[in-house]
C-alpha cells in the first residue's frame, strides 16, 4: 500500500482514539493530554489497517447536510416503527402476517450497505435477515410494510449520500 494513502487513515484513527480518551478521562491538564496523545498515536500506528478499510468516502458539505437530513427522517421512522410494533403486540389477536422478501440493492459501498441494513431493521415492520451479494433478504411483519420497503425511498436517499 502506498504511503500517501496510509497517512490520512492514520490521522483519522488517532483523532477518533484521542476523542474517546478525552471522553473517558475528562481531565484537561497537560499530563493526561500528553499521555492520551502518546497512547492514541501508538495504537493508531499499530492497528490503523484494521479499523478503516481501503475505500474512502469523500466529505463534502452537501453530503454532510443530506446525512443530517437522513438522520432526522430516520428518527421519525423509528418512532413510527415502535408505535406500529406496540400496536401489534398489545392487540388481542396479534395482526401479523410474516413473510420473507428479496430486495436487490444498487448501493456499492460497504458503509452505505451497513447503514441501509441498520435502517431496514429500525423502520416499520421490517428487519434485514441476510445479505448475499447484491440481494438483501428482509423479514416483513405484514404485506403493507414489505410493499413500502420495495418502493425504495430509503435507498434513494442513501444513494444521494454515498454514490
Amino acid at each position: 500500500m502506498c504511503a500517501e494513502k496510509k497517512m490520512p487513515r492514520f490521522l483519522a484513527v488517532s483523532i477518533i482514539l484521542f476523542g474517546f480518551w478525552l471522553l473517558l478521562s475528562w481531565h484537561f491538564d497537560p499530563l493526561h493530554l500528553t499521555l492520551g496523545l502518546i497512547s492514541s498515536l501508538l495504537i493508531a500506528y499499530l492497528s490503523s489497517d484494521l479499523l478503516i478499510s481501503e475505500e474512502e468516502i469523500g466529505f463534502s458539505p452537501r453530503k454532510v447536510f443530506s446525512f443530517i437530513l437522513y438522520s432526522i427522517y430516520l428518527a421519525y421512522n423509528i418512532v413510527l416503527a415502535n408505535l406500529d410494533v406496540a400496536y401489534r403486540v398489545l392487540h388481542p389477536r396479534m395482526p401479523i402476517d410474516p413473510q420473507i422478501v428479496e430486495f436487490k440493492t444498487k448501493l456499492r459501498s460497504d458503509v452505505g450497505r451497513t447503514i441501509l441494513a441498520n435502517s431496514i431493521t429500525l423502520t416499520p415492520g421490517t428487519i434485514s435477515v441476510d445479505v448475499r451479494g447484491d440481494v438483501f433478504y428482509v423479514h416483513a411483519l405484514s404485506e403493507k410494510s414489505a410493499e413500502e420497503l420495495l418502493r425504495g425511498k430509503m435507498e434513494g436517499k442513501l444513494m444521494r449520500i454515498f454514490e
Binding site: N82, A86, I96, P98, T121, L122, G125, I127, V129, H139
Partner: peptide, 10 residues
C-alpha cells in the same frame, strides 16, 4: 424473527 421485530426496535 417476530420476536426480533419487537426487541430490535422497542
Amino acid at each position: 424473527f417476530t420476536r426480533l421485530h419487537a426487541t430490535g426496535k422497542g
